[in-house]
């Protein structure tokens, strides 16, 4: 690659010869390991132009699918890696961090950085070895939860009401059922969280779940789980489904530990602080 080229970085991983053999990344480009001598760490990269990947939503989805496939394939061979986000590009030739004005290639810059960060990267790789990420999303289908509220709103009197009033009452009823679902969701969340925490090593709340309009969020979390505990999480979820038929469960994975890959903070980089 020319000195003005860049490296598209997929992951940092233990340096295992052959781990990237035959794997392709974005747009079918072959990926390779950039070994960082003396650290036991390698970066999974492809040679790229110094420009980010941009495109419409469909295009980005396709690239993300390709990135995820490449990272997952290599992760399954090495048992541990730190995946990077989409569009992590290391450019060559930029100003030297030391201010000496000397230009470095992308490989040199990435190698220098990995060398400097190696203790933290190695520690993080060790703590994630043999672990995977699972995604659990639970919602509550309100139509399957609440008995309809029959406080005169939909009795015979309703027929004589104006369209506006009927709409208003329907809204009110929807609101009541939403409120009952909120309370149920709170207690289901507390119980499910407790059971998941007894199995998973870490749980990160992810805020809002994907859900249909008639559903209420219960829990949306990324779990860090040992490979042989995946079934234990599955058992917690199937028990929940049996206890509360109105819950809808999405259970995704196992993935490389995307949500647990941040490199512990070193000397105050704004990017690291921002990522918290």
């Amino acid at each position: 690659m020319s000195e003005h080229g860049a490296l598209y970085v997929y992951a940092l991983l233990p340096d295992r010869e052959g781990a990237a053999d035959g794997v392709t990344g974005l747009d079918g480009r072959p990926v390779r390991l950039l070994s960082v001598p003396g650290t036991g760490v390698a970066a999974l990269v492809h040679d790229a132009e110094a420009a980010p990947y941009q495109g419409d939503d469909e295009q980005v989805r396709r690239w993300v699918g390709e990135q995820s496939r490449a990272v997952t394939a290599v992760w399954e061979r090495t048992g541990s890696l730190l995946p990077t986000t989409f569009n992590v590009l290391v450019a060559g030739g930029g100003p030297d961090a030391d201010g000496t004005g000397e230009e470095r290639t992308a490989e040199q810059r990435l190698t220098d950085w990995v060398t400097e960060q190696a203790p933290r990267i190695t520690e993080q790789l060790g703590s994630l070895a043999g672990r995977c990420e699972l995604r659990v999303e639970v919602t509550l289908d309100r139509t399957a939860v609440s008995a309809p509220d029959t406080t005169g709103a939909d009795t015979g009197v309703g027929n004589s009401r104006s369209a506006g009033m009927r709409r208003l009452l329907a809204k009110q009823q929807e609101n009541n059922s939403r409120q009952r679902a909120e309370q149920l969701a709170d207690s289901l969340h507390a119980g499910l969280r407790r059971r998941l925490l007894s199995v998973a090593e870490e749980l990160r709340d992810r805020g809002r779940a994907h859900r249909a309009p008639q559903e209420t969020d219960v829990l949306s979390a990324a779990l860090l789980v040992r490979g042989d505990d995946i079934d234990a999480v599955g058992t917690v979820l199937s028990e929940l489904q049996a206890e509360q038929p109105a819950v809808r469960i999405r259970f995704l994975g196992p993935w490389p530990p995307y949500s647990f890959a941040e490199i512990p903070e070193g000397h105050g980089s704004p990017a690291a602080r921002q990522g918290r």
Binding site: V60, V88, V90, R135, W255, Y258
Partner: peptide, 19 residues
């Protein structure tokens, strides 16, 4: 979900390295 996770999560490299 992968789109969301890959746009928001994962290791963030040092600011010096960015394009």
């Amino acid at each position: 979900d992968l789109v969301e996770v890959l746009l928001n999560k994962g290791a963030v490299l040092h600011l010096d390295l960015i394009v």
